[in-house]
Design a protein around this nucleic acid. Sequence first.
DNA 1: GTTTTCCTCGAACGTTCGATCGAACCGCGC
DNA 2: GCGCGGTTCGATCGAACGTTCGAGGAAAAC
Lengths: 216, 216
Amino acid sequence: MVGDRTQYDDKLDAILGVAAEVFAEKGYHNASIRDIARACGVSLSGLYYYFQSKEELLYLIQDHALGNLLSSLEERLNEVSDPEQRLRALMENHLRYFVGNMAEMKVLSREAGYLGGEFGQRVSAKKRRLTDIGTGILTELQPESDVHPRVATFALFGMMNWLYTWYHPERDVGVERLIEDMTRIFLAGYGFGSSGLEYPRGDRRGGRCQDDLVAR
Amino acid sequence: MVGDRTQYDDKLDAILGVAAEVFAEKGYHNASIRDIARACGVSLSGLYYYFQSKEELLYLIQDHALGNLLSSLEERLNEVSDPEQRLRALMENHLRYFVGNMAEMKVLSREAGYLGGEFGQRVSAKKRRLTDIGTGILTELQPESDVHPRVATFALFGMMNWLYTWYHPERDVGVERLIEDMTRIFLAGYGFGSSGLEYPRGDRRGGRCQDDLVAR
DNA sequence: GTTTTCCTCGAACGTTCGATCGAACCGCGC
DNA sequence: GCGCGGTTCGATCGAACGTTCGAGGAAAAC
């Protein structure tokens, strides 16, 4: 049987959720284990029954977020083959999960790079999987794009991950609108509808141009 | 006279530069004052002659970066009135300063929100000035845009500020190319040249390259 | 009823941190 | 040579941190 969740698992998940919120509010380094214990209603030492170190706690949160993000993404992508629709699926998946799990994603975005050793490698590997999927879709969408794939990929993720800096669900536009607007910006550009954009017309061949592409 | 820089000023600037690099490498909270003292070749207590607290040191770095960014931007914008050119100027200014001062900008981006009280307010005010300029330009460029101005603004800055996460000058494309690619993505969209974009005026065909850039 | 396993806790340890303070050093005008 | 700001330092402080440990209780297994 797969669904045999113990009390232990449930409580660990609850702790991860609360810890993510504390980390999101005060930052990983500013938040003490004592803060988290207080927020969880557990004693300081009681926490250590569920993880071995503060660093592992951060890892568990980040791994949990990336795991959900990835599995949900890969599920969605299995149903779509058109590159543009795949990109839309990626963005919708990412933004929806982001807004629905702000604390987790804030910790994932802001506290990146603070995990070392084994933990850091595991998180990096999953992040790499995510960005590779992004790069793959982008090069499918534009096999001969003038834009460097790595720049395009991180422009895309930067646009979305920066959310944790400014987005407030109660004050800002809803998720649907957010998805719509960002998709539009990335795919069609903010200059759509403007009269004199110079990009479309490409008669002049610039000097540097063809050395890029080919995403390895 | 304006140019009467004392030894004190010079050394403070040097300290700010070194401190920015230490903060950029280890993170603000992981870097101790002792680390910075060592990197500066000064004793621990010797540092406190130049600032009063670690928090003020962070403030000085962030304020310095934002100050340079803003004054350089406002200078450029004084020479341009066309909205699209103004946006290009903003992006070029931002990206060029970012790449040229990675440590400072990494600290500014990653360590945002950790300053409280007076320091935090002053930094927030300058950031606000920057984003307001961005929003202003964007609404000039597209007065009736379907995209929410706030979303567009932070999509733009997110795209650029995320640089600190991935960009390595020695491995990645140069600044000029970076500016070109990001400008193109934000203005014309990554979907340019693609066949079936449903967005209004989806007419734009992918030109090969244009070496625009005007050198400046 | 007794044993065993799972879970929780208070109290404490050793370390590191940001910050302070008074003494010493230095180059300069007198 | 002397005094005097401006500058640097070693020594040290109290506080807060992450982590440990062994005792205790509760619930399950026998």
